[in-house]
Design a protein around this nucleic acid. Structure first.
Ligand SMILES: [Mn+2]
Ligand SMILES: [Mn+2]
Ligand SMILES: [Zn+2]
Ligand SMILES: [Zn+2]
Lengths: 145, 145
DNA sequence: TTTCAATTTGTAATTTTTACAAATTAATAA
DNA sequence: TTATTAATTTGTAAAAATTACAAATTGAAA
């Protein structure tokens, strides 16, 4: 059996063709794709795949902690095959989402209201990515003023 | 002139009736409301208010840094009249969003990819709030097993 | 007052997500 | 194997959230 199927089973998920394809896609694409990107890309290989199945499967994978969703972008939920906790950076210019080295587990146990119990922490940085900053510098250089 | 109008003007926003009402609502409700909640609540006082105006105004207020939006919830964007940086906690049981004491500015300058430039950081905790934990404890107590 | 610009409004369109029942596929029992 | 049942997938329709846009209104400047 392939490693993706094993990953699913270790999380109590029966490894169907569709579930393997979606999980495999997430593990192979560290781009934090949207539902639509996942659907469109996979649809080329599996023309029978339904959008509903993508939604259903992503909900299942998340519930079983096989991956995580991130709400860094207000327009679309993003999905991340890397389930171990890490922070993210979204570029406001190009919209791309990058991983950050920040170990968010350090934050897990601090500074939320008394009597509360936190199970998860997400850290989202917003700013400008390296490429977009370079591009900006170029544009400025070209300007006369 | 009232203080809300002054706040708007200090951010370069012309203080119209609608803009004052929306900004005032956010400053008076630390509940991190959705667009719909803001619209429905204000509509009682200003029956002519349009949903589009609420969307437009919130986008403007955010652009001018008079307040901030938070994407802690995948279903709805939330709005926060408190623009100075702080973390948030969402209860997975009741959906409520609470402020956290965590000073996120500490995180501002650390651990995102090299050459990148972060302008903002958001920290979102997910878990169970105090009230929901109490409720859970009660339910468990009642059970025979 | 007239003119022009900014703002608001209402409607329609788009996008994202969810609901749901039928069809298909997989697992279990006979 | 074949019949029965359960799990999964599919397609369509509905709901919910957001955006586009042009007309109407309001405010500012000439
Ligand atoms: Mn990631
Ligand atoms: Mn807050
Ligand atoms: Zn970029
Ligand atoms: Zn709660």
């Amino acid at each position: 059996m392939n490693s993706v199927a094993k990953h699913l089973m270790s999380h109590g998920i029966r490894p169907s063709i569709q579930r393997i394809a979606i999980m495999q896609y997430l593990m192979g694409h560290a781009t934090h794709p949207t539902v639509d990107t996942i659907y469109k890309d996979l649809h080329d290989d599996i023309p029978t795949l339904s959008r509903t199945t993508v939604y259903n499967t992503l909900a299942l994978l998340e519930e079983k902690n096989a991956m995580m969703s991130i709400t860094i972008d207000s327009h679309n939920v993003r999905y991340d095959g890397n389930a171990n906790p890490h922070a993210h950076f979204q570029c406001r210019k190009c919209g791309m989402i990058f991983d950050s080295e920040l170990n968010v587990t350090d934050l897990q146990n601090i500074k939320y209201p008394k009597g509360f119990d936190a199970q998860q922490v997400q850290v989202f940085y917003y700013g400008t990515c390296g490429k977009c900053r370079e591009k900006e510098a170029m544009e400025k250089g070209k300007q006369i003023n």
